[in-house]
């Protein structure tokens, strides 16, 4: 790993190293900040940490989430209706960061609204480790990357199955923290039968970067998790399945803990 990469995200690197030393993939659950309410989302985050999350991906609810499917879109809408705000979600980041590295997932306009520099500085003050902006491709990311590097925040880029080889190399070279490999051509959401392509996708991602490779989008069963780890992924991100569990139950924290424990069983030591 290069100096920039590690210095931008020592906590993320450590989290992957620990998982690796235990011969398993890193468990990376997604949390929709403010859903169903701010307090309950904090409980869910704590439950994630207790079950053994290595990194938490904390979503900022957004009015127009173009990379998200129906479940996360609706959860965001509900969170906003319940009064969720960026400041509220940043407080979640502050509350969770001492126990687990937090990577904020946030759409570009929310980053731009106070100004990129001001946003990243605020984020850094919460103790968060990283930032993912799903609608900020490489070409648009220069300023945000510079601000993140200056504040010790890892700007985690995404690659997709449609990303051509030259782009992949360029994105991989600028990756910080980890490389977020989108497993499907599509938005977030549960879907059946996708693990066949994992091996090829992960291999391409690994060849393009020095940072760990995490796979996400559509992963919802222990079998999916197992397939991702077997394909060589250093980490597995689970979103929609957990957001759905949080919404389905009155005791969201207990419900997500149960689902996450099950998913964790797929991380295995049999790689």
């Amino acid at each position: 790993m290069s100096d920039t990469v590690t210095s931008a995200s020592p906590r993320i690197a450590t989290a992957f190293e620990r998982a690796h030393s235990e011969s398993r993939g890193a468990l990376m659950p997604y949390l929709m900040g403010g859903y169903p309410t701010l307090e309950r989302s904090l409980e869910i985050g704590r439950a994630y940490a207790q079950v053994g999350a290595d990194i938490i991906e904390l979503g900022v609810p957004y009015s127009d989430p173009l990379a998200d499917g129906a479940v996360i879109h609706e959860a965001a809408t509900e969170a906003l209706a319940a009064g969720a705000s960026v400041s509220g979600v940043l407080e979640l980041a502050r509350a969770l960061s001492p126990s687990v590295p937090v990577v904020l997932m946030c759409y570009a306009n929310v980053v731009f609204a106070p100004g990129v520099e001001a946003f990243v500085e605020r984020l850094a003050h919460t103790g968060a480790a990283g930032l993912i902006v799903p609608d900020l491709p490489l070409e648009e990311a220069t300023q945000t990357l510079a601000a993140c590097d200056a504040h010790g925040i890892a700007l985690v880029p995404l690659i997709a199955p449609t990303t051509p080889p030259e782009r992949l190399a360029a994105i991989g070279a600028r990756a910080r923290g980890f490389l977020y490999t989108v497993s499907v051509v599509g938005t977030t959401g549960e879907r059946s039968a996708l693990p066949e392509r994992f091996t090829e996708l992960v291999a391409k991602a690994k060849a393009a970067t020095d940072v760990p490779v995490a796979i996400g989008f559509g992963i919802s069963t222990p079998e999916d998790v197992r397939a991702a780890v077997r394909a060589g992924a250093d980490g597995v991100i689970v979103g929609t399945r957990l957001v759905r569990a949080a919404g389905d139950s009155a005791d969201s924290a207990a419900a997500v803990a149960e689902v996450l424990s099950e998913l964790k069983s797929g991380l295995g030591t049999d790689r």
Binding site: L66, A67, A108, P134, D135, L136, P137, E139, E140, P157, L158, I159, A160, P161, T162, T163, P164, R167, I171, V182, V185, G186, T187
Partner: peptide, 12 residues
């Protein structure tokens, strides 16, 4: 202007 879209669309 610009291209503020998910990576999946960049090639298209």
């Amino acid at each position: 202007g610009g291209q503020y879209v998910p990576e999946t669309l960049m090639a298209a």
